[in-house]
Every structure is written in C-alpha cells, then in structure tokens.
C-alpha cells in the first residue's frame, strides 16, 4: 500500500465539482426546512388540538427514524403508488434531487421546530407582560418582542442542526446524486485509493463545518448586542 499524496491534490478539484451540489442541497433544504419548522411551531403553540396533534405525530416520526430510511421511503417507496406517478408532483419526485430535497426538508423541519420551540419557551414571561402593558397587540408582541429574543436563544442549537444537515447531505449519494461524497465514491471506484480520496473529502467537510461555525458565531454575537448594551 502506498499513500499517494499527489492523488489528493489531483482529486480535490474534481471533488470541488461536487461542492456545488452539496451546498445546493444544504441551503435549499435548510431554507425550506426553516419555513416548515416555523409553520409547525405555530401550529404546535396555537393551543388547538386539531392543529397541534398532527405536529406531534410528524415530529415523533421524523425524529425517531434514520434519515437514510426517510430518503429511501421517499425515493424508492413513493413510486409504488399510481396516484403519485399521475400527480403534478411526479416531475419532482421522479428525480433523485427532488427526493433528497423533500426528505432533508421534512427532516430538518421536525428538528428546527423543536429548536425554535425551545427558544420560544426560553423568552421571559415578564417581557410578554411588559408588551401587553404597553398596549401591543398579540401579533405585534409576537413579531417585535418574542421573535427577536427567541431567535437569539435558538441560534446555538440551530447552528448544530445546520451542521448536521451538512453531514446529512452526504446521504444523497446513496440515491445516485453526485454531491461531494458521491463524487468521492465514484473516484474511489475508479482508483481504489480510499484513504487518499475519502480523507480529502473529509478535509473539505471539516473546512466547511469550520466556516459554518464561524458564521453562526458572528451571527450570535450580533443578535446578542442588546445584552452588551444593557451591561454597559
């Protein structure tokens, strides 16, 4: 066995071709997942059982099963039904990309809504009361008082979830998508040099994780500026 360092340099440009797909999967499904998570959160805290009960079932299912299985149920499983093959969604669900986005979105929606709920529950009750005393309406209190503080409280957990999403995009390689892990697996199949290629891919993932962590750190600092002001 020889460890061919040049193979790493040769393969990094090829793998960078897969980064586009990885980032596309990451940002699109995180964005859709965030919107879904907010909707689920609003349904859950609405206080109406017919809205909150489905969210329990949804969160329970998507947090209790592996993402790989969710991806397989959607990609391999859904075409079993005639109704889906005839529906307007078929052009999306026919493609592995659409299936990966759908699975990752549904998964992240479940986790994000729980994270946001944690932030929402962490907001001091006194602030609601202060808002009420100032005569703010319920929607105004929610948008101007609760949301900014809940967002600030939810950032650390959300950044962890975002990084889990980055790692979850690698599972898209199992349904033939050529994102970074997929490209790496293709190169390994051609060269049979697993150490060089997979370690090169791992390094790229680590760099991406580092950038994401830094970015969220800066965002958290910015959202916490009110704490500094009150301390000064």
């Amino acid at each position: 066995m020889t460890f061919d360092i040049y193979l790493i340099f040769d393969s990094i440009p090829k793998m960078l071709a897969g980064i586009g797909m990885t980032l596309h999967l990451l940002f699109l499904s995180s964005f859709l997942g965030l919107i879904l998570g907010i909707i689920i959160l609003l349904m859950r805290i609405s206080g109406r059982w017919y809205l909150s009960f489905p969210t329990f079932a949804y969160i329970y299912f998507f947090r209790g099963t592996p993402i790989l299985v969710q991806i397989f149920v959607i990609y391999h499983g859904l075409p079993q039904f005639e109704a889906i093959r005839d529906s307007v969604f078929w052009p999306i669900l026919r493609e592995p990309f659409g299936c990966a986005i759908l699975a990752l979105t549904l998964n992240s929606g479940a986790y994000v809504s729980e994270i946001l709920r944690g932030g929402y529950l962490g907001v001091d009750k006194g602030l609601h009361e202060a808002g009420k005393a100032l005569g703010l309406s319920t929607p105004h209190r929610f948008i101007y008082v609760t949301t900014p503080i809940a967002v600030r409280l939810a950032i650390p957990a959300y950044s962890n979830d975002f990084i889990s999403m980055l790692k979850a995009t690698s599972l898209a390689s199992t349904i033939t998508l050529l994102e970074m892990t997929g490209v790496a697996r293709t190169i390994v199949a051609q060269t049979f040099a697993p150490y060089e290629i997979f370690i090169a891919a791992a390094i790229i993932y680590l760099v991406m994780t580092w950038f994401l962590q830094r970015g969220f750190g800066l965002f958290e600092k910015r959202m916490s500026r009110y704490i500094k002001l009150s301390e000064a």
Binding site: K167, A168, T169, S170, A184, R185, F198, A201, Y205
Partner: peptide, 12 residues
C-alpha cells in the same frame, strides 16, 4: 469526528 459525515467515516 463531529465535523465529518457519518457515512464518510464508515466508508473510510
């Protein structure tokens, strides 16, 4: 091990 996807670790 917290920054690299699980699948990649298993493959390595």
């Amino acid at each position: 091990f917290r920054g690299v996807p699980e699948l990649l670790v298993i493959l390595i």
